[in-house]
């Protein structure tokens, strides 16, 4: 029953779902599962961390004590106190200093790489920035411990070099490359006609950059800074190793502090599953999750804002 001439095919002859049609449907379902996995994981992260911290959140959680008490004394057997104020101060001081270090560096580097450098120089610099971003955080922590620590002791004549300054600089160096890349993207997103128009008016290159390109790219640059903040806020190993890890609301750059993330990393291994202390650490995790979620969301909205314009 084989027809050789398909001169006048009818519906029944070719409108049949063949193997390829079913394969396509199957693949569509499979890749859809991959697609929603990201949503599942985000929800899963929030759910599981919340479940583990639930006991404390429901029974003993006091907003006032948790956020406003500077006393983090989980191992006090009679009256353990779980105040994260000092830890928040530690994280904030280190992240703040990191931004003071990273913003000028990454912005400067982004302008140089994006607007001044050309050809080989530009490519090599970009590669170096990328390699800088690739250094694992535990190695950064090790650098803080072994290189920065003695350096700070020598330079500033202080007894210990593991402190806000050390961790802030380390964190700044860690956050700078990613901020540089995003800032450079933001500069690249400024249409060339802006530059041409300014140049046609007789502006010099630096005038073009400072009066035209930077203002036009300011949202993207803000997004870069926010992502840097998110990075610093969530960084764990480097701040664990370089802050000095002592609960303290810092008065100066040379005070040791302790970060939220580092507290979890240092103490989770010593707590019994399900204990108050264990649950408090998960509660800190929820707090970290929510804060970084908001930061990332804001950064994304800002960056997307410029892209959609």
């Amino acid at each position: 029953m084989e027809r050789t001439s398909p001169a006048q095919p009818t519906a029944a002859e070719f409108d049949r779902r063949n193997l390829d049609w079913y394969i396509d449907k199957l693949v569509q379902i499979l890749v859809f599962i991959g697609g929603i996995s990201a949503i599942v994981f985000i929800i899963g992260i929030f759910a599981f961390v919340t479940i583990e911290g639930a006991g404390f959140l429901l029974d003993d959680f006091s907003f006032k004590e948790f956020f406003l008490s500077p006393f983090w004394e989980p191992s006090d057997e009679d009256a353990p106190e779980y105040g994260i104020l000092a830890l928040v101060a530690g994280t904030a001081s280190v992240t703040g200093l990191a931004m003071i270090v990273a913003i000028p560096f990454s912005l400067g580097a982004a302008i140089f790489i994006g607007e001044f450098a050309t050809g080989r120089t530009r490519e090599s610099l970009k590669v170096l920035v990328e390699l800088l971003a690739a250094i694992p955080s535990v190695v950064w922590g090790f650098i803080g411990l072994t290189i920065m620590n003695p350096l700070i002791i020598d330079l500033f004549d202080v007894p210990v070099g593991l402190n806000v300054l050390n961790a802030g600089v380390i964190l700044g160096l860690m956050a700078a490359p990613i901020m540089t890349s995003i800032a450079e993207d933001a500069l690249k997103a400024v249409p060339d006609r802006y530059r041409e128009a300014a140049e046609a008016l007789g502006a010099t290159q630096w005038e073009v950059i400072f009066k035209t390109v930077l203002p036009a790219a300011k949202n993207g640059l803000l997004g870069a800074v926010l992502l840097g903040v998110g990075r610093g806020f969530g960084e764990t190993m480097a701040v664990l190793m370089a802050t000095g890890h002592s609960v303290n609301i810092p008065d100066s750059l040379f005070d040791p502090v302790r970060a939220l993330t580092a507290t979890i990393a240092a103490e989770l291994g010593e707590t019994a599953v399900g204990s108050d202390h264990y649950q408090v650490l998960f509660t800190i995790g929820i707090f970290l999750f929510l804060v970084t979620f908001v930061i990332n969301l804001t950064a994304d909205l800002i960056v997307r804002g410029i892209r959609d314009q």
């Binding site: 029953m1 084989e2 050789t4 398909p6 009818t10 029944a12 002859e13 070719f14 063949n18 390829d20």
Partner: peptide
């Protein structure tokens, strides 16, 4: 699937 095989006689438009 070979589109030319298993062709039924005209089942109508």
């Amino acid at each position: 699937v070979n589109p030319d095989t298993a062709t039924k006689p005209n089942a109508g438009n």
